[in-house]
């Protein structure tokens, strides 16, 4: 595997990894790892470093909804212009253009169902190009970004085998 791919794989699992340790693990020098990361940041291959949080365990109320949006694409601009008008709202955490029965998947986080409903009714649905919205609320998150929430893994292997 290319060194870049290996660095990305490691960072994707743990963006706080110690670079000296990562360098040892990949068999290269620490400056080499640091330079590759800096270059990938410049090239927007690495677009940011997030923390994966299980909000259910905090006292903060949060709801997540997935909205299927149908739109009318605009002449010369296709989907991108209307997408931009939608994703600029900071409530929206992710947005994808889809193949199939609708156009956009919009993932939104809000303080309450009411605030999300308000957003859809007042901001999203009234947009000229938007034909329809179907809002699905997330009831429980099991797994996000490859991490299973609430998983405690016990090592059940026999302690010594030859």
């Amino acid at each position: 595997m290319e060194i870049r791919e290996q660095i990305l794989n490691a960072l994707e699992k743990n963006s706080r990894i110690d670079l000296a340790e990562l360098a040892v693990r990949l068999g290269v020098s620490e400056p080499e790892v640091a330079n590759e990361i800096a270059d990938m940041e410049k090239e927007h291959i690495i677009c940011g470093y997030n923390t994966l949080i299980n909000w259910d365990k905090t006292s903060d109320e949060k709801v997540t909804a997935l909205i299927e949006v149908r739109v009318t694409p605009q002449r010369d601009l296709g989907y991108d212009a209307i997408a931009e008008r939608i994703y600029k709202y900071e409530e929206i955490t992710s947005m994808y253009l889809m193949s199939g029965g609708f156009d956009f998947t919009v993932i939104i986080e809000g303080k309450s169902m009411k605030s999300v409903a308000n957003f859809v009714a007042m901001k999203l649905a009234p947009l000229d190009s938007v034909q329809s919205c179907a809002t699905h609320f997330v009831l429980k998150k099991y797994k996000d970004y490859g991490v299973v929430f609430d998983e405690e893994k016990k090592d059940e292997r026999v302690k010594i085998t030859l």
Partner: peptide, 26 residues
Amino acid sequence: PSGIRKFFDIVNDMPDAISLGVGEPD
């Protein structure tokens, strides 16, 4: 018997011991 037998027995009597002794994938 495998030379390690008595060693196994001690390990098994120590539930708080940690191990770098396995011969199988994690």
